[in-house]
Simulated scan of single mutants.
Amino acid sequence: MTQGSSKAHKKSKPYIIGVDLGGTKTLTVVATTQGEILLRKKEETPASQGPEVVLAQIQEDIRQVIQLQGIHFEEIQAVGMCAAGFYNHREKVMVKSPNLAGWTHIPLPGILEERIGLPVFVENDANAAAYGEFRLGGGRGKSHVVYITVSTGIGGGIIADGEIFHGSQGYAGEIGHFSLDLNGPQCKCGNRGCLEAISSGTAIARQAAEMLAAGRSSRMPEVAAMDGRRDVTARHVFTAAELGDEAAAEIVDRAIKYLGAGLAGMATLLNTEIFVIGGGVSMSGNSFFQPLQKAFFSRAAGPITENVEIVPAVLGDEAGIVGAVLLAAEEYALGEGGLTE
C-alpha cells in the first residue's frame, strides 16, 4: 500500500462503535476516534437470559446505531467495549461477571468479531472509565491517575505512566476490596471489613437502616419521605448530615474516614498524582470532598503524598464508554502500527 492510499484508507474509517455492557443497562454509541459521542442507544440488558441472548442483542444494537447514524460499515474502524466483571486482559476472556448470569470464561472479543466482522477491543468497565477520565476528564494532563467510583459498590482503575495498570491477569484496581477492618462488616466478596462494605452507597444505606432499627433518633426517614421514599439511601444520609443530624453525621464521618485511609494507602503504594472520584456518592459535593481530603492527608505518608490531588470525575456515567472508544481507536489505529486492512 502506498503512503497516499494509506492516508486515504485511514480517513475512510473515522468512527468507533462503543458498547457499555452493564447488568441492568446496555449503552451503544457511535463515536469519533477522538472520543466524541455522536449517537446513543440505551436499553435494558436481558442479563438473566444468559450470554447468547445478550450477545445477540449487542449485535443487533450495533447494526441499529450504524443505520441510525447513516454511516457505512466500511467507515467503522473498530468496536470498543467495556463490561463489569473479571476480564482476563491477556487471554481476552470474561472469566466471570457477577451481574450477568452464566458469563463464565466467555471469549467475548472473539465471539463478537466473528459475528459482526469488525475488530473488537474489550476492557473492564472501571479500567475503561479510568482511561476515559485520564484522557478527557478529571485526570487530563496527568500521567499517574487513580480513578475510584463510589456508588452501589466501590471500584477503581489505575493509570501508571499513561497506561492502564492491569496486574498479572487484568484484575488490578479493586480498591473496594481493600480490607481495612479485620472485624468489620461482611462484604459480598466473602471478606470482612472491605472498603466497599463500609464506604459504598449500599454500605451507608445499610448502616442507616441498622441505626434506625436500633431505635436511634434521626431525621433520615423524614428526608427520605420528602423524596417520596420509605427507604433511606446514601443521598438521604448525606442530606440529613448537612441538616445537622447526629446519627447521619456519624455514618458519613465513618465512611469518609475509611475511604480517606484507603486512598492514602493506594497513594503510598503507587505514588499517584491524582485521584479522580466518580459515582453517586461523590455527587454530594463539598460535603463529601472536603472531609475526604482532610481524612486523606491525616493518613498520608509524608512527601510521597503531599502533592496529591483529589478531584471529582468529569465524564459521569459515560466515562467507561468514552475510555473504551479511545482504547479501541488506539489499539486499531490505521497506519500507526495497528490494523491496516
Rank of each mutant, 00 (worst) to 15 (best):
K25C: 05
P46R: 07
T26H: 06
I37E: 14
P14S: 03
T33C: 13
G23A: 10
I37T: 06
T24I: 11
L39V: 11
G23Y: 00
T33Y: 13
L39F: 12
G22P: 00
T26K: 00
G22D: 04
V29Q: 01
R40D: 09
D20Q: 08
T28L: 04
V30P: 00
K42V: 10
K42S: 13
I16G: 01
P46I: 07
E44R: 15
Y15N: 03
T32D: 12
V19D: 00
G18E: 01
L39Q: 10
L27S: 03
L38F: 12
E43V: 15
R40L: 13
T28I: 10
I17R: 06
T24S: 09
K25I: 05
P46K: 07
I16E: 02
A47C: 08
E43S: 12
R40V: 09
K41N: 14
T24R: 02
V29F: 02
L38I: 07
V30Q: 07
G18W: 00
G22F: 01
G18H: 03
A47S: 11
E44Q: 15
L39C: 11
L39D: 13
L21D: 02
E43R: 15
I37V: 12
L21Q: 03
E43M: 15
L21W: 01
I16R: 00
P14Q: 02
K25R: 10
D20E: 09
V19M: 02
K42F: 08
V29W: 03
D20M: 08
T28G: 07
L27M: 10
L21F: 05
A47M: 07
K41G: 04
G18P: 01
D20K: 03
I16H: 05
G22K: 06
I17W: 10
P14E: 01
V30A: 09
I17Y: 10
Y15C: 04
G35E: 03
L21H: 01
